[in-house]
Simulated scan of single mutants.
Amino acid sequence: MTALYRIFDAEDRLLYVGISGYPVTRLDAHRRGAPWRAEIARHAVEEFPTRQQAAFAESEAINIERPRYNKQGRRTEPQSVTLARQETVERNKIAAREGLARCREELAATEERFQLSLVNARKAGLSLRELASLSGRSTETVRKAIRINGDSRTRVEREVLA
């Protein structure tokens, strides 16, 4: 068990928030050595099953309740906001990866359709140079696309006709 403790002054203003596995010992250390020890009037202790949970609660308390003497751990925003922002970033990364995968699949399908269009245009009588010019690709790239897809298309056509 780890405890989150809060130290208050006589007017119930929060002076300090901390965590410790031995809160009584830690509170005694504050009473003996803290520069603000004369202001201590009371304390409250809250137990947590893990140190990680206590540390999270401490960070939240420091950032939301703003104790007067805590120097470390103070951020410009509560940890819950930071964690929510990190979760959003991770969700966005996952969505972006999924979107890229879909685009890659669509691009592959589009490329295949484009290559088949090259085959059909070649069969219709367009020269390799004309196809290269129209497609913005090199003559060699067009030749390869036609050879790959043309052979495949011919094999499929033969299977259908057989």
Rank of each mutant, 00 (worst) to 15 (best):
91 R>T: 10
108 A>P: 02
107 L>D: 10
10 A>I: 02
65 E>L: 15
74 R>I: 09
149 N>T: 07
31 R>P: 12
117 S>H: 10
151 D>V: 13
12 D>Q: 15
97 R>Y: 01
12 D>F: 04
1 M>F: 11
6 R>I: 00
120 N>A: 14
8 F>P: 08
69 Y>L: 07
99 G>L: 11
50 T>D: 03
55 A>C: 02
100 L>H: 08
61 A>H: 14
111 E>S: 09
16 Y>I: 07
96 A>R: 15
156 V>F: 14
111 E>L: 11
93 K>E: 08
146 I>K: 02
7 I>F: 00
67 P>L: 03
10 A>P: 03
78 P>K: 05
85 R>S: 13
81 V>K: 07
160 V>S: 00
8 F>N: 05
94 I>V: 14
156 V>L: 15
57 A>Q: 13
43 H>G: 03
134 L>D: 05
76 T>M: 07
30 H>E: 11
66 R>G: 01
120 N>T: 14
5 Y>T: 08
90 E>F: 08
26 R>F: 13
121 A>Q: 01
113 R>F: 05
5 Y>R: 07
70 N>G: 02
58 E>T: 10
29 A>N: 12
138 S>F: 05
71 K>N: 06
76 T>K: 12
146 I>T: 03
98 E>T: 12
135 S>I: 09
96 A>E: 14
54 A>G: 09
135 S>C: 03
87 E>N: 05
129 R>P: 00
77 E>C: 07
140 E>K: 05
88 T>A: 07
71 K>D: 10
73 G>A: 08
116 L>S: 00
159 E>T: 05
93 K>V: 07
35 P>W: 06
16 Y>K: 07
107 L>N: 11
153 R>K: 10
151 D>W: 09
134 L>V: 01
8 F>M: 09
4 L>W: 01
105 E>H: 01
90 E>W: 09
67 P>F: 03
34 A>L: 07
137 R>F: 01
156 V>G: 00
56 F>S: 00
134 L>S: 06
41 A>K: 08
104 R>K: 11
124 A>V: 08
138 S>E: 04
134 L>P: 00
160 V>Y: 11
118 L>H: 12
54 A>V: 05
162 A>W: 06
63 N>Q: 09
121 A>I: 01
18 G>P: 04
11 E>I: 04
59 S>R: 02
106 E>S: 01
116 L>K: 10
115 Q>I: 00
35 P>K: 05
150 G>T: 12
125 G>W: 15
159 E>L: 11
14 L>C: 06
123 K>L: 15
103 C>V: 08
4 L>F: 03
136 G>D: 13
156 V>Q: 11
111 E>H: 06
161 L>A: 09
17 V>E: 03
26 R>N: 05
52 Q>G: 09
106 E>T: 02
70 N>A: 02
160 V>F: 12
131 L>K: 02
154 T>P: 00
135 S>G: 05
31 R>L: 15
22 Y>E: 10
6 R>L: 12
41 A>W: 08
52 Q>A: 13
53 Q>R: 13
66 R>C: 02
148 I>Y: 01
145 A>L: 11
148 I>W: 00
53 Q>V: 02
72 Q>W: 15
118 L>V: 11
118 L>M: 15
149 N>L: 13
157 E>S: 04
162 A>C: 05
136 G>L: 11
139 T>E: 15
